[in-house]
Amino acid sequence: MAKPEEIFPENVLKAIGGKPIKNKLYMVVLSGDMDKVMAAFIIATGAAASGMEVTMFFTFWGMKAIQKDGILTGKSLFGRMLGIMNRGGLKAIGPSRLNMGGMGRWMFKLMMKQKGVASLAELYDSAVELGITMMPCQMSMDVMEFDPQKDFKPNVTEPVGVAKFLEEAAESRVTLFI
């Protein structure tokens, strides 16, 4: 593997603390739409299958992708309203365009199934099998009133903050924001 000084100029190395760059993919998943979450999982599983270490950081709408199916979240009035209007889980999320009250989601799922594209649930299971690390964002979790024990899938790590994201992103050869 190439040494960091061969890849980055000196000032960049200094900014990241001179740590060696790993063959690692670090991904921020901000979107909670079916199409974007799908792209995130396809790239992540492909990278892990190609021998890269992969971490996915889920924040804001993206946390819908790591929520259990059929869970109602929230504690306060607004929190519960958000839980009802913003249903999470891989089965509930729809495409970013042409969802048309769920019709688009149904149509895309059917078309992808007919063509043999892996479903979001299959992609998620592959991600777990390939050892991909999935971290939720502590701050978004607090705002949206998620309970990490009750609401998230079992393979998700403890919630983390921006410093943890930066530390890991700085040592990753590839970083993506979806």
């Binding site: 892990a48 043999g116 892996a118 592959s126 099998e129």
Partner: peptide
């Protein structure tokens, strides 16, 4: 019958 990324995911396994 498998489409991207499943062929390489299965290969890796």
């Amino acid at each position: 019958g498998l489409l991207c990324p499943m062929p390489i995911v299965k290969m890796a396994k």
